[in-house]
Amino acid sequence: MYKAKVYVTLKESVLDPQGQAVKESLHSLDYHKVADVRIGKYMELQLNAGSVNEAESVVEEMCQKLLANPVIEKFRYDIEEATA
């Protein structure tokens, strides 16, 4: 059993209005050191895969196909062995 941690974020070229709103909220709480906020998605997948390599290739495929939209988003993932 493997655990995949998938991070999906907006591409740098894509404006993030949610991040802007949160940044302004932090500023209004006097956290003026915050220069920028970008909001993304975090997903955890439990996988029945035979090896790390197999888990990696299926996660890559799932990200391309469904979990991220390559027009506006980019993704990365970490895979670790998990105890079932």
């Binding site: 894509v14 404006l15 209005p17 949610q18 939209n69 027009v71 506006i72």
Partner: peptide
């Protein structure tokens, strides 16, 4: 249609939220 790739591009959260 955008997600299916029948049209190019994407739509996402309105700028005003």
């Amino acid at each position: 249609l955008l997600e299916a790739g029948l049209l190019p591009g994407a739509v996402y959260r309105n700028e005003s939220l």
